[in-house]
């Protein structure tokens, strides 16, 4: 197999994983919209959610965590303008120390130093304005989970408009592990890129994660991952 074929094989595998993840987020988004939307029909603001409704969202997030090893955290993020109780803004689940899912609490007190203001963050703002799913470029999630992650988000809406997103986080560390494993069978060196050419991970110290791929890279090859939603791309020389 040529290096290019090996890299294309890797791209297909990773694309399939990401497609499965977005399919799953789509299912959760429509489930939440159907179930909670029906129970909150005719009200602009949803909630406050009942314990069984919160449990339903938790169970969905836990199942997603279980089925997608790439994912470190998952849940629903509501638009603060669309729900009644601010403390129910982000029913979010993460992998606990022993791997079992557990709740993750965010700080929603506007006056607190650790207040998590996510309204302008790309994983929320973009799906809200475009109505389309989104995979972000890597970012340090300060005051969120405080990790270096990418976020996948799928928006959902009712007749009043945007309600929130079903989201999941992928740690760059985890993505790197997956890539390193796959890279053992690829004879050439390659780089995984997020939007705007930010390097997510690479198999050569010439390209460091977090930096932007330099401009003089015309002689290399670029390949968009063949995913339904635009996600990542590969670069190699």
């Amino acid at each position: 197999m040529s290096v290019e074929e090996e890299i294309r094989g890797f791209a297909r595998d990773l694309a399939a994983d990401l497609d499965r993840l977005f399919d799953h987020l789509n299912r959760i988004a429509s489930l939440v919209r159907q179930r909670l939307g029906a129970e909150n029909a005719h009200e602009r603001r949803w909630g406050p959610f009942q314990p069984d409704q919160l449990r339903m969202m938790e169970a969905e997030a836990d199942q997603l965590l279980e089925q997608h090893p790439l994912v470190s955290g998952a849940g629903i993020i509501f638009d603060p303008d669309r729900i009644v109780s601010p403390e129910q803004l982000i029913p979010w689940r993460v992998r606990g120390e022993r791997g079992a899912p557990e709740a993750y609490g965010f700080d929603f007190d506007e006056h607190s130093r650790d207040y998590y203001d996510f309204l302008q963050l790309p994983w929320f703002a973009e799906p809200k304005s475009t109505g389309a799913p989104k995979l972000t470029t890597p970012y340090v999630d300060f005051l969120g989970v405080d990790e270096y992650i990418l976020t996948a988000a799928v928006p959902f809406a009712d007749e009043h408009g945007f309600v929130g997103v079903a989201g999941s986080d992928i740690e760059v560390n985890t993505l790197e592990k997956v890539m390193m494993r796959a890279a053992k069978t690829v004879s050439g060196r390659f780089v995984l890129l997020g939007a705007q050419g930010r390097i997510v991970c690479s198999t050569t110290a010439r390209f460091l994660p977090g930096e932007l791929l330099e401009q003089n890279t015309e002689r290399g090859h670029h390949l968009e991952l063949p995913t339904q939603v635009p996600t990542l791309s590969l670069y190699w020389e």
């Binding site: 270096y148 790197e176 592990k177 991970c201 690479s202 460091l208 994660p209 977090g210």
Partner: peptide, 8 residues
């Protein structure tokens, strides 16, 4: 340690 962690 990941490459990202080493870089950081």
């Amino acid at each position: 340690m990941s490459v990202v962690e080493l870089r950081d």
